[in-house]
Amino acid sequence: MAKLRDIAKACKSKNAGPFEITIDVMFDDAITFDAVCRSGVISPALFSRLYNVPAESVQFSVYPPAFAFKASFERPIPSGAVGDTDVYGAQQHAPLLDVEIPL
């Protein structure tokens, strides 16, 4: 088992417009990326569990040219609205860091 924080090249979040957040997990090379793909761990279900959003509302892409996974879903509060905590959406990736991948 390996934690994402130890094998990912990047794990980041950002607004995709004011109402959605998009999270990217990227790897250094095809070998790691393929192994993570095979594990099936990074999936809409994972984001659904970590962020408490319906799996069917997660727009999910596997993007081999960048050895990357991408998930986009609704923010609970739009960027900068009353009660928002992260205007740029840049610090919402952390729950992924401890996700374990069987390698």
């Binding site: 959605e20 998009t22 727009q59 892409s61 040219p65 960048a66 990357a68």
Partner: peptide, 13 residues
Amino acid sequence: VAIQALHENASPT
């Protein structure tokens, strides 16, 4: 270049 396709977009493609 591939990585930039992910930036601020809901879909990379």
